[in-house]
Design a protein around this nucleic acid. Structure first.
Length: 198
DNA sequence: ACGATGATGAAC
DNA sequence: TTCATCATCGTA
């Protein structure tokens, strides 16, 4: 089973999706030009990483969310269509990867904090070479970054819920258990170089 | 425990 | 235009 998740999947409750994304695969397509028999050939490679940690940012009232102070140039993708990427720079250094959730006009997104063996949202994007070029792009093969269901089931006993990281300022929203992570490492976490057509 | 780092949004 | 803040990370 290998199914690319589309806007229908992401047009549902943010917390529910954040939990369901555990065990799904973040797939990154890399292109490279190679020289072969005096010809320039385009080579593609898909690297897939099982998502291990997520955080939900749900609605305009969520004080931990960028959307809590209304629509701005930066957070506009959160107010847009589900199934697109929201990528922004954090602390001047790290690119944060989010998938947009919910209908247009309702601002929500899920931060992908861990996938494969990569722990931490900043390290993940650096390792996969993800930056703001992906901002507001559709999560599909054409974009080169998408999410797949590969049939892995994560059971409730293997899931931990905690408050979100680094949102102490968010008052009553700071303690809400909107962070989901897999308790024990479950194989396979990484699938490198899966076959891809040019 | 803290500094690097620079974009962001609000205040002025 | 200035200023405080920040969905992080590596070093200590």
């Amino acid at each position: 089973m290998r199914k690319i998740l589309t806007s229908e999947f992401f047009d549902r409750d943010a917390k529910k999706i954040a939990r369901e994304l555990l065990g799904k695969y973040l797939v990154r397509r890399h292109h490279s030009l190679i020289r072969e028999n005096k010809r320039i050939m385009k080579r593609g490679r898909n690297d897939a990483f099982m998502i291990t940690e997520t955080e939900a940012y749900d609605g305009p009232r969520d004080k931990a969310s960028h959307a809590s102070r209304g629509k701005t140039k930066r957070n506009a993708p959160m107010f847009g269509l589900p199934g697109r990427w929201y990528v922004y720079l954090c602390y001047g250094t790290y690119e944060m990867l989010n998938i947009v959730i919910g209908k247009g006009g309702y601002p929500a997104a899920i931060l992908i904090r861990g996938a494969g063996s990569h722990k931490g949202p900043g390290k993940l994007t650096k390792a996969l070479r993800i930056d703001r070029e992906f901002n507001n792009k559709i999560a599909d093969k054409k974009t080169g970054l998408w999410i797949e269901d590969r049939g892995v089931k994560i059971f409730p006993k293997d899931i931990i819920r905690t408050p979100r990281v680094g949102v102490h300022y968010a008052k009553e929203w700071a303690g809400k258990p909107y962070r989901f992570l897999i308790k024990n490492k479950i194989q396979p976490l990484v699938m490198k170089g899966t076959k891809a057509k040019p």
